[in-house]
């Protein structure tokens, strides 16, 4: 990622619903208006479950 981007934009560009995913940056939960940097390690975790 270049020069920092807002997390929910990143999700939207990937076609993912922000409400349906958690963003974990460098091991810590962050809200979807967080600016993400190039060197952040990001996990996008779906929250949906079935059954």
């Amino acid at each position: 990622m270049r020069g920092g981007r807002v997390a929910h934009r990143v999700l939207e560009d990937l076609g993912l619903a922000p409400a349906g995913h958690l963003i974990i940056r460098n091991g810590t939960l962050v809200p979807s208006d967080t600016m993400l940097d190039d060197d952040d390690v990001i996990e996008i975790r779906p929250v949906v479950s079935g059954g």
Binding site: G20, L22, L29, R45, P46, V47, V48, S49, G50, G51
Partner: peptide, 30 residues
């Protein structure tokens, strides 16, 4: 909600199976 429960597990340090049951994919409930 699901979002609240998933966040609960992250902040409480609970390791859980993130993948869904394979049988659930594409079912009506979904």
């Amino acid at each position: 909600t699901e979002r609240e429960m998933a966040a609960w597990c992250v902040i409480r340090g609970i390791d859980y199976v993130v993948e869904e049951c394979p049988m659930a994919i594409g079912n009506r409930h979904h």
